[in-house]
Write a protein that binds this DNA or RNA. Structure first.
Length: 497
RNA sequence: GACCCGUUCGUCUAGUGGUUAGGACACCGCCCUUUCACGGCGGCAACACGGGUUCGAGUCCCGUACGGGUCGCCA
């Protein structure tokens, strides 16, 4: 049987990085096994689902490169079928009508409320105490016909247990007494999540369900539905969760944009780097290779490599340099440094365009200069943003001077105020404006002034690029060219800041 | 609270009864160099705790602690 998996986000917000990883694992599993990767939008909650969210999620998936093999399925389109399934179970006596009036659940802390209620009842709670569970069929029919609203609940047997073999967590068992008679159909006729998922997975021919560990207990409920429906259940694989630093829950409320996938795209991550990083969170190839491109990931991916323990995403919200996990940042830098320039340039082009720094010439007559500049400055960059921020001076005259750079490299050497313009004069006279022409001139200049080359070059770096760090300075001078170099070295702007 | 899941360096992880417990990121030091967030070399640093089983336990069993998940006419 060919493998068919699906990624099933609910469009109630942006794409969470945990969901992105779930999508990744589904995608890798499908590609590795030669199966199909499908996407199903779980929009059965009409009140909370938004088109905006759907668009943003699909956009995120596209950025990561996970295009579905078949048309995207919208769960709400099949609501009629889900309802039919519930009604069939009702007719077969596997479900019953519950005439209990709907509880008002509009309160803020629903989760807390439910947990508190469960705590009160403790282990004494009888999951089979619904007064309508054994209502005679005739009475139930009559009340329904009279127009009394009812929800449809699955009639879970009193004794027995569900069990399944999870590909990650092993054998899972749950006693029926722990499972309530779950609601299949709301009193307004609206099908609910567990029913919809099962029906759709059957309809889509899903063979392997790979999803977050938060669904582990739902799985037992879904198995009951599969069994009632007389359908074969798929294989299950539950993924460990991604936690915040300290092992706490990673949530939008407490951690903000850090959990949104789009943040990574917008802050200069390469999709390839982020995919690579995400793959290593909760999964291991069991080799010492960590830099794995998509093709390699597909080749070596297997469910056996998935961990059972949750992984903490490590970052420090108060430190701009560590706005996200160190290793993710390092990996992105690694991709920026090693990607073939041809592949990097389109990404840099987008970045520069976004900041109004792009010039069409870079694709034409200045292509060579542009390429060598990228080649030169990418060495110490961490994100694509660095090309328009730290690297700005290579593409524009309008760049800022880093305060610390001024302090450290100019402030401590007041002589530079005279020296750098003097250096400009010296450089202006050079015929051969290349490394071999520039470097000896700089050395000679420093010898004349009786200072270290580093002092002068560092000072020059500030005036030329506004930065305290960067590529080899002589190479940078060559790259900028004589005109800009001379002009910037003579400028007093930085000194007056 | 009940049920379920988990616990190896600060973080991500390798490890399936005998290892000097390996790698990566971060951190620190040294080297290279014309400076730096490049590069090279090196260092610091972990089996949650307590009992078993065993000649021998990070690896198996039982408890404890801690953390996480779930418990809805949400998904």
């Amino acid at each position: 049987m060919t493998i068919r998996v699906r990624f099933a986000p609910s469009p109630t917000g942006y794409l969470h990085i945990g969901s992105a990883r779930t999508a990744l694992f589904n995608y890798l599993f499908a590609r590795h096994t030669g199966g199909s990767f499908l996407i199903r939008v779980e929009d059965t909650d009409l009140e909370r689902s938004t088109e905006e969210s759907t668009r943003s999620i699909l956009e995120g998936l596209k950025w990561l490169g996970f295009e579905p093999d078949e048309e995207i399925v919208f769960q709400s389109d099949s609501a009629d079928k889900h309802r039919e399934a519930a009604l069939r179970l009702l007719a077969e006596g596997k479900a019953y009508r519950d005439f209990t009036p709907k509880e008002d659940r509009t309160g803020k802390d629903i989760k807390q409320e439910i947990a508190d209620k469960a705590r009160e009842k403790g282990a004494e709670k009888d999951m089979r105490d619904n007064p309508y569970r054994d209502l005679p069929k005739e009475e139930s029919d009559n009340r329904a016909e009279a127009g009394e609203p009812f929800a449809v609940r699955l009639k879970v047997a009193k004794d027995g247990k569900t069990s399944f073999e999870d590909a990650v967590y092993g054998l899972q068992e749950r006693d029926y007494s722990e499972i309530e008679d779950l609601v299949l159909l709301r009193s307004d006729g609206h099908p609910l999540y567990n029913l919809a998922v099962v029906c759709d997975d059957i309809a889509m021919g899903i063979t392997d369900v790979i999803r977050g560990q938060d669904h582990l207990t739902n799985t037992h409920k879904q198995i009951l539905i599969y069994e009632s429906l007389g359908e074969e259940k798929p294989n299950f694989a539950h993924l460990p969760l991604i936690l915040a630093p300290g092992g706490k829950k990673l949530s939008k409320r407490h951690h903000g944009e850090i959990v949104a996938l789009t943040t990574y795209r917008d802050r200069g991550f390469l999709a390839a780097a982020f995919r690579n990083y995400l793959a290593l969170l909760g999964w291991s190839p069991k080799t010492e290779d960590e830099l794995l491109g998509l093709d390699e990931l597909i080749k070596v991916f297997s469910l056996e490599g998935i961990n059972r323990s949750n992984a903490a995403f490590n970052f420090d919200a108060n430190n701009p340099k560590r706005w996200t996990d160190d290793k993710a940042l390092w990996m992105n830098a690694e991709y920026i440094r090693t990607l073939p320039v041809d592949e990097l340039i389109p990404l840099v082009r987008e970045e520069l365009r976004g900041e109004q720094l792009w010039r069409e010439e870079y694709d034409g007559e200045e292509r060579e200069w542009f390429e060598s500049t990228i080649e030169l400055i990418r060495e110490r960059f961490y994100t694509l943003k660095d090309f328009s921020e730290q690297g700005r001076a290579f593409f524009s005259e309008d760049f800022d001077f880093d305060k610390k750079a001024i302090e450290k490299n100019l402030g401590k050497h007041p002589d530079l105020r005279e020296w750098l313009p003097a250096l400009a004069d010296k450089l202006e006279a050079i015929e051969d404006f290349t490394h071999d022409g520039i470097f000896p001139a700089v050395k000679e200049f420093c010898a004349e002034k009786g200072t270290k080359v580093g002092v002068v070059l560092n000072g020059a770096r500030v005036l030329l690029t506004g930065q305290a760090v960067g590529p080899s300075m002589v190479a940078a001078i060559e790259q900028l060219g004589k005109e800009k170099t001379v002009m910037r070295l003579r400028s007093q702007v930085a000194w007056n800041e």
